[in-house]
Design a protein around this nucleic acid. Structure first.
Lengths: 121, 121
DNA sequence: TACCTATATGAATGAACGCTCATATAGATA
DNA sequence: TATCTATATGAGCGTTCATTCATATAGGTA
């Protein structure tokens, strides 16, 4: 992309072309930005976060989840749908009962790092 | 907390007390949940994500940022306020011009890990 | 078959939020 | 002082989204 094209958008005149060039190299394409922000958005809701924490060590049925995190069955089901769509949980059915578990072991590494960030501020 | 209190909320009856006890130990207090989800929420907006990426290697003034990520000055300023409040950026003033830079070197580790997660799905 | 139960889901509602537009503020300069 | 410019910010608007409520679905059991 041309410097000219990059700069065109701006409404003011205090521009630093060398810095802008460096910054521009670190940007990502829109598709990546979208995937990235949607991923983080999944972790930005308290109900979903509680579900993820609850499933850290053991599978739970919807009823268990509702009880453990004190959220209505319907709300839990709605959020489980979001977590399923983002491939963060998987499930198995046993008769009427659906057992959910984490689909990604690495998730808790991310959460732990975020906690450390918060603590050190 | 008593099993009885935990279970009270649930509307159904298929409960697994042993699993519930394990899950319950991994929950966090409401304050921690709130801090954690607010932290992730900061990364869930495309404009803020672009700002963070742009600032990876160099400081930029508001005008530079607006130009690099092609977002209006006003929108950039609004999002910078959010990033400031979450202590993700710091700034220095030089006359009229305000230079922003990242306040946390670890942030990009988190983003890189998130990217890896997405790629492997 | 009829009914009970665990889970899923559509619609409605209210709250949160990101943008635009207009304007305020503050530093620089004439 | 008067004005110009870079940045900040309040109000308003439209959209997104999490919850509740009502209901659908599907598996079990009598």
């Amino acid at each position: 992309m041309d410097q000219k094209d990059i700069i065109e958008f701006c409404e003011c005149n205090v521009l630093h072309p060398e810095k802008i060039e460096i910054a521009h190299k670190n940007l990502l394409d829109n598709e990546s930005i979208s995937l990235l922000t949607l991923f983080f958005k999944t972790f930005s809701d308290p109900t979903r976060m509680k579900i993820i924490l609850a499933l850290k060590e053991t599978e739970l049925c919807v009823c268990d989840l509702s009880a453990v995190i004190s959220v209505s069955q319907s709300a839990v089901s709605h959020q489980l749908k979001t977590l399923r769509e983002n491939r963060l949980v998987k499930y198995r059915k046993e008769g009427n009962v659906v057992y959910y578990s984490l689909d990604d072991d690495h998730v808790h590494v991310l959460i732990t790092q975020a906690m450390n960030h918060i603590k050190h501020k």
